[in-house]
């Protein structure tokens, strides 16, 4: 039997014990979804021919939409899966922006330039 690695967090006078493997698994799921949505929204922005600030605005809207989808997936008692909801939106927010720009410029070039 494999032992469960745990993380202990003390907050506001009460102690909570979390399963470390499950926390990492959930973070990986969020990262996967974020990368996928950066790719798909970049393709959408390129196809629509968005330029400059409109494209970046589209990224913000798409990430917010992804956040709402993940919150809806976690449900009302999200404490079972995440320690905070805000971290789902903000962790690696600007990291996947580069993935977005790559796909955006690629799709824009394929559809609108050539």
């Amino acid at each position: 039997m494999q032992r469960t690695r745990t993380v202990t967090v003390e907050k506001g006078g009460e102690t909570k014990v979390y399963n470390q493997g499950a926390i990492q698994h959930n973070a990986a799921v969020v990262e996967y979804t974020r990368t996928c949505s950066a790719v798909f929204s970049g393709m959408g922005a390129g196809v629509l021919g968005l330029t400059a600030l409109y494209g970046f605005g589209f990224y913000f809207i798409a990430m917010f939409g992804m956040w709402l989808i993940l919150i809806a997936k976690a449900g009302a008692n999200y404490q079972r899966y995440f320690t905070s909801r805000k971290a789902i939106l903000l962790n690696g927010f600007f990291g996947s922006l580069f993935t977005y720009i790559l796909c955006w410029t690629f799709a824009y070039g394929m559809v609108h330039v050539y």
Binding site: Y18, N19, G21, A22, F40, K73
Partner: peptide
């Protein structure tokens, strides 16, 4: 993309 993965329970008690 979000529906292809499932979350795990993070509380160690579970």
């Amino acid at each position: 993309a979000s529906a292809t993965k499932t979350f795990k329970e993070i509380r160690a008690v579970e």
